[in-house]
Write a protein that binds this DNA or RNA. Structure first.
Lengths: 202, 202, 202, 202
DNA sequence: TATGAATGAGCTTTCATTCAT
DNA sequence: GATGAATGAAAGCTCATTCAT
C-alpha cells in the first residue's frame, strides 16, 4: 500500500511538473523557458525535474504527444461499423464539434504544437510528420467511406482531400485563436461541416 | 562608378550570406545553426556577418519576410478589374499553379516558415500573425467576389472560407513535401482548384 | 541548521570569489582580467561566478564600495561630542594613523580605486563622485569645528580646505605606495597631522 | 615645397585625429570608445587612423603625455634664478593661476588623465608614476628653496610636502570640476596659495 | 595617401545537467 | 526522494587591426 501511495505520489509530482511546463512553455516558448522556470512554477527544486524526466526535451515531447493523442482520438472515433449517410454526417458533426472544443480547451497545447513542435529537433520533427501521416491516412479512410456512401465525389484522391480537410480545420481554428478580428461565428461548427461536406461552391 | 561597384559588391555579399543562412537554417534549424555555421557556409569570417546584419535573428526575419512577400504577391495578383466567372476560374488556376511552384522552388523557405517562424520571438510571431491576417483578408475579398459572381454560396462567412482555403492549400502542399507516401498527383493543381471551387461533396 | 550551513557556505563562497577578484583585478586590472581568471583563482568553475554576482562589474562595484566604506568610517569617527582643542588634535592623529594603516593593509583595494574606479562606467563614476562629495562634506564639517575651536583660520572656505586635506593625504599615501624613492618616514603620520593643522609655512 | 605642403597636411590630419580622439575619449571613456568613433568624429576612414598611429593606445598615450607636459611646464617655470621671498611668492601665485587655467581649459584632458590613465596598461601606468615622481621631485626642489628662504618650516620632508601640495591642488580642482555644489570661489587661486604657504592653521 | 571591407581572437553570459548531501 | 550548488560547454557579438584597391 505504501507502494501504492508512493506510486500515486509519484504520478502527482509528474503531473504537477507537466502542468507547470505546459504553462511555462505556452507563455515564454520552449527555448526561452528554462528548467528553472518550470521547477519554480511547480514549486519544487531544480534537481527534482530530472527525477521525472530525462531531459528538458522529454517533457515537451510528452506534451506534444498528449495533444496528438487527443486529436487522434477524435479522428479515430469516426471509424467503426460501416454507417449509412445520415450516420456519417452525424459523426462528422460530432468530430467537428469535438475538435473545436479541443482547440478551445487546450489552448496551451495548441500554442506549443503550432509554435514550436516543428523547429525543435529532428526526432520530434519526424514525430510530428508521423502524426500528420497517420491522421491523414485515418481521415483518408473516412473520405473513402464517404465516397463509397456517395457523399463525396470519386474523382479526387482521398489522401489529398484528407490533407485538405485537416488544413482547413486547423487554419480556421488557429485563425479563430489568434486573429482578433475573426468573426465570432456561433455556428462555426456548422460552417466547418458544410465546407467539408459540400465545399464553398454552389 | 566605384560607388556602383561598392554597392554591387555589398549586395552580393549580403545575398551570399542570405543564401548560406537559408541553407543552414533549413538543414539544422534556426536554433541549432550558429552564426559560425552560416559564415563558414558563405566562406567568410564570422565578423563579416555583422557587417551585413545586426544580429542572428535579423537574417531569419528577412528570409521569412521574403517568403511572405512571394505568397502575398500570388494572392494579390488575383485582384484587379472585376472579372466574369470564366476569368475568375482562370485566375484561380493561375494562382494555384503559382503557389504550387512556389512551394516546390522555395523548399528551404517553406521549411523555415512552417518549422520555426512561430516559435522564434514575440516580434516575429506577430509578424507571422499579421501575415496571416493580411492574406486572409485578401483572400476573403476574393471569396466575396466569387460570391458576387454566383460561384460561391452566400451562407458561409467569407473570412472563414478564406482561412479554410489557405489551410487547405498549405496542408496539401506541406503534405506533398514531407509525406513520403503522398500520391504523385500530376494534376494536383486541378484537384486544389476543384476543392476550392466545388468542394469534396458531390 | 542546514539552512545555517547553507547560508554560511554561501557567504564563504562569495568571500572566496571577492578575494580572488580583488587579487586578480589588482594584478591585471579590471579590463584585462577575465571572469575566467577570477574563477580559476578561486578554484571554482566559471558558471559559479554568476551564482553569486550578476555580472563582472558587480564584483568590482562591491570592492570599490568596500573601500569607500572603510574610508568613510574613519572620517565619520571624527564626529560626535563637540571636543576641545586637545581632543580635536588627538582625533586627528587617530584618523591619520588609521588612514595610513588602511592604505597599507588594503593595497589591493587602493590600487583598484585609484586605477580604475573612474574609467569604468557612468554609474560607478557617479558613485565615486558621490563618495568624494560625501566625504568632502563630512570633512568640511570637521574643518568648521576646527575653525570654531580656533584651530583653523576662518578666512578659507571649509569645503576648499576639506578637499585640500583629502587630496593631500591621498597623494602622500599613494606616493608612498608607488614612488620607490619615497622617504621611509617613520613619522609620516606626524607630518600629515602637522600639515593638516599648521601647514608647511613657518 | 610639395613636401612642405605634404608635411603640413600630415600634421593637420594628425591633429585632427588627436582632437577627435580627445573628445571621444572624454565623452565615452577610452574603453567604450572605438577607433571607428574616432575616425568618424574626425571625418576620415577607419584605416586612416593607422597611418598616423600605431595602435589605439598610442593616441591615448599622446594625449596623456600632452597633459603631463603642460603641467610640467607650469611646475618648471618656477625654477631658474634663485629668487627672494617676494619673488617666490609671486611665482607661486603665477603657478597656481596657471594650473587653475589649465584645468579649466583642458577639461577633456583632465578627464582622461584622472579617469583612465592608471587603469590602462602597465606601460602607461609606469609613465603616470614616472610623471608623478618627476613632478614631485621638481616641486620638492621648490619646497627646499622655500625652506632656504625661510618661508617653509624645516622639520617636514620636502618630498612629503611636495606630494601634499600636488594632491591638495589636484583634489581642489577636481572637486571644482565635478562637485556641483563646490563653492564658486572667485579667489580660489588665493586660497590655494594661502594653503600652500601658510596652511589651514592659525 | 586614403579607403572601408574583412578578419578572427576573445569576451561575457546562459543554462541543461549532475551529484553530494 | 528531494535539494540546489556546481559545472563547463557553447554561442552571440565586438572591435582593433590589416590590406587590396
Amino acid at each position: 500500500m505504501s507502494e501504492e501511495r508512493g506510486k500515486r505520489g509519484r504520478d502527482e509530482r509528474r503531473s504537477q511538473l507537466l502542468l507547470a511546463a505546459r504553462q511555462v512553455f505556452a507563455s515564454k516558448g520552449y527555448h526561452a523557458a528554462t528548467v528553472d522556470d518550470i521547477t519554480r512554477a511547480a514549486g519544487v527544486a531544480k534537481g527534482t525535474f530530472y527525477l521525472y524526466f530525462d531531459e528538458k526535451r522529454a517533457v515537451f515531447y510528452e506534451l506534444i504527444r498528449t495533444f496528438f493523442d487527443l486529436v487522434t482520438e477524435v479522428g479515430g472515433a469516426f471509424a467503426g461499423e460501416v454507417p449509412d449517410r445520415a450516420e456519417y454526417v452525424r459523426r462528422l458533426e460530432v468530430a467537428a464539434a469535438r475538435i473545436c472544443e479541443l482547440f478551445r480547451d487546450q489552448r496551451d497545447l495548441v500554442k506549443l504544437v503550432y509554435r514550436e513542435s516543428m523547429g525543435m529537433d529532428p526526432e520530434l520533427e519526424s514525430m510530428v510528420r508521423e502524426f500528420y501521416r497517420r491522421i491523414a491516412r485515418l481521415e483518408a479512410e473516412n473520405v473513402q467511406l464517404g465516397i463509397d456512401l456517395g457523399l463525396y465525389r470519386a474523382d479526387l484522391h482521398p489522401l489529398v482531400v484528407a490533407y485538405a480537410q485537416i488544413g482547413m480545420v486547423e487554419r480556421i481554428l488557429l485563425g479563430q485563436l489568434s486573429d482578433r478580428s475573426f468573426p465570432a461565428e456561433p455556428d462555426l461548427v456548422r460552417q466547418i461541416v458544410e465546407l467539408a461536406l459540400r465545399g464553398a461552391g454552389r
